[in-house]
Structures are given as structure tokens and as C-alpha cells.
Design a protein around this nucleic acid. Structure first.
Length: 337
DNA sequence: CGGTTGAA
DNA sequence: TTCAACCGG
């Protein structure tokens, strides 16, 4: 979920094809959560193989990655490591919300209320170690690199840009900007209709790039002040001040200069303020990674998805042939330029 | 979510 | 050919 600061940023819509050649550090946990939440049957049941193992994430990954690779995007997945101790409350709160949603899902199914069933099913999605392991196995087979972050994945993804190993961070959340990612791309999917909070309202959603430096300049704040704003609003590592949203926090920080002054003027305190700031200012990352794209293993892909997880052989063969022509396309371009 | 299908 | 409903696993 992250910090609710999205309203502050100006975005530039792009076509997916404009990202050709880009190395994108993808927030793996974020993308996989999206798949687990969204790829479901009408009553909210996720896709499963014959053994009852969830496969929604594998479905999402194989088709999404086929599209990205076909376009010439070079994904690097980053997975979360050990969460900071300050995240404990957020993790616990998420668990409670999930458990309530699970009960409401069951209830809605019994009542035959499909719409409510889907809504609560989505909210009950949970990433397990097995789901992460499956996803990594698929990435390995597809020849797509991934990195295990020591702590927050978005921090590691931001570091990849700083270190010259990626051009963009890919995530729906804005936290990578707090970690100093220069450029974030959201909606990293083929343009399509997506429904939002409302009921029957569908909107076209296309990829959008958020440029950190340009936004800081426009807002007239520093990176540190952006972090202060996020802390006032609330992050995964602190609760935030009740009644203060992104716009109010911006106003307050611009007026007072820094969060300490804002809190002083409001006669408030934030527990562990320095520690929260430090998570964003000096994130725990690793630099001992290697990144390499390889050719996919066709046979392994068919075995893993079709034999082990009951995917249709026709469909996967189709994906394989698209991946192969993408490979050749890139070879041709590489020789030309 | 994204591929497939089938009605217009 | 287009687009929305429906599957997929």
C-alpha cells in the first residue's frame, strides 16, 4: 500500500512501446500482489491447478512478461527481504483486514452476491513464500533476472537506478520515490479498461512516468521535504497525523520548512521520527548483485506451466513463439545499432 | 490481468 | 473488424 502521496505528482502518460530498451526494476511483490488480487473467477476464487495450488500469479506473469519482452523492455525483478521492525504494525493491520475480508467473502458467496464476493476476495489476497518461490522459478525459466532485497524491495529498486543498472522503477506504489528513485513507471501493462472504486465505471489506464526531480522542482521542495510530507501523511513505518493528507502536508512543510517545526506548531509528536526518516534517507540495500538476461528454456516452461500447473499447452506454445520472435527482433536491432 | 470467443 | 463478455487454472 505504501504512503498516500500520489496526489502530489504530475505524471506523463506514455505508450508501452516508448519503453523499448528500458531496464525496469520491477517491484515484484507489488506486481504479484496485483495479479493475486485481480486474476479471479466471478465468485472471487483464484485460478488453481488440479492440486488446488493458486496459479493466478503465474498466469499474470507469463502473459504480462511476454508482452513486455515482445516490446523490448528488459525487466529486473526485485523482491522484498526482511521488513524493518517499524513495519510490524502495518503488517499486523494488513493481516487483520485480510482476515475480515475473508469472512465477508465467504458470507457474500453464501448470499450469492457476486459483486461483494469479488470485492472481498480481492482484499483477501495474500503473498505466500510458495507464491514467491513459484514466481522466481518462472523468472529463471524465462531468463529474467531478479534480486532479493535485504529489506524493502522498493528501496533496492531505487538503488538499481542510482547504481546505473536500471532506467526506471516499475510499481503501482509511490514509495520508490521516497527512496530516491529518479523515475517511476506505473500501470506497466498493455493499455486496457480497468474498473475503479465506482461500480460500472471503466477507464482506460495507460502507463505513466513520474519524474522525481521534475516534481520536486515544480512543488518547490527537496527530496527530504517530500519524505517529511509522507511521514506526516503516514507511511508503512508510521501512522501519520489524523486529518492531514498529501496536499495539507505539502502546505505545512512549505510553510514550516521541516517536519519537526510542523509537529511543534501542532503540538504533536511522531514516535520514532528519526528512525522512520532514516529508512527513507539511508535505506538498507545490497550492491553485491548481478543482473543478466538469458534465453528462456522452452522445454522447462512447458513442463513447469503445463505439466505441473495445468496450463493449456496451446496457449503456452503461443506465448513461447511470441517470446522467440521478440528475441530475433532484438538480435536484428542489436546488429543494426 | 490478458487471451479468446462470439455477436453485431 | 470491433468490442464486450467470458474464461483461464
Amino acid at each position: 500500500m505504501g504512503s498516500d502521496i500520489g496526489a502530489l505528482f504530475q505524471r506523463e502518460e506514455v505508450a508501452l512501446s516508448e519503453l523499448r530498451g528500458m531496464r525496469i526494476a520491477i517491484d515484484g511483490n507489488n506486481m504479484i500482489y496485483q495479479f493475486l488480487s485481480n486474476i479471479r473467477q466471478a465468485d472471487g476464487t483464484p485460478l488453481m491447478d488440479r492440486n488446488g495450488k493458486i496459479t493466478s500469479h503465474l498466469t499474470g506473469l507469463i502473459y504480462r512478461l511476454t508482452n513486455l519482452i515482445e516490446i523490448g523492455i528488459r525487466p529486473i525483478f526485485v523482491f522484498d527481504g526482511k521488513p524493518p521492525a517499524l513495519k510490524a504494525r502495518t503488517i499486523e493491520k494488513r493481516r487483520e483486514i485480510r482476515e475480515v475480508a475473508e469472512e465477508k467473502w465467504e458470507d457474500a458467496k453464501l448470499r450469492g452476491d457476486k459483486e461483494a464476493a469479488m470485492k472481498y476476495a480481492k482484499a483477501s489476497a495474500r503473498i505466500t513464500p510458495e507464491i514467491i518461490a513459484d514466481s522466481k522459478r518462472l523468472l529463471d525459466i524465462m531468463g529474467i533476472p531478479y534480486i532479493d532485497a535485504p529489506s524493502e524491495g522498493e528501496a533496492q529498486a531505487a538503488f538499481l537506478i542510482k547504481n546505473g543498472d536500471a532506467d526506471l522503477v516499475g510499481s503501482q506504489d509511490f514509495d520508490s520515490l521516497l527512496f530516491g528513485a529518479d523515475r517511476l513507471v506505473r500501470n506497466l501493462a498493455i493499455t486496457g479498461k480497468r474498473k475503479v472504486p465506482g461500480k460500472k465505471i471503466y477507464l482506460d489506464v495507460s502507463p505513466e512516468i513520474i519524474d522525481l526531480e521534475r516534481n520536486l522542482e515544480r512543488l518547490g521542495i527537496t527530496h527530504e521535504q517530500l519524505i517529511d510530507i509522507a511521514i506526516l501523511v503516514g507511511t508503512d513505518f508510521n501512522e501519520g497525523v489524523k486529518g492531514i493528507g498529501a496536499k495539507t502536508a505539502l502546505k505545512l512543510i512549505k510553510r514550516e520548512g521541516r517536519i519537526e517545526k510542523v509537529l511543534e506548531s501542532l503540538n504533536l509528536e511522531i514516535e520514532g521520527l528519526e528512525a522512520v526518516k532514516s529508512i527513507f534517507m539511508r535505506p538498507e540495500v545490497r550492491d553485491d548483485y548481478t543482473i543478466g538476461w538469458r534465453e528462456m528454456d522452452e522445454e522447462a516452461l512447458l513442463h513447469f506451466l503445463c505439466d505441473l500447473h495445468d496450463f493449456s499447452e496451446d496457449r503456452i506454445k503461443k506465448a513461447i513463439s511470441r517470446l522467440k520472435s521478440a528475441d530475433q527482433g532484438q538480435m536484428r536491432l542489436d546488429k543494426w545499432f
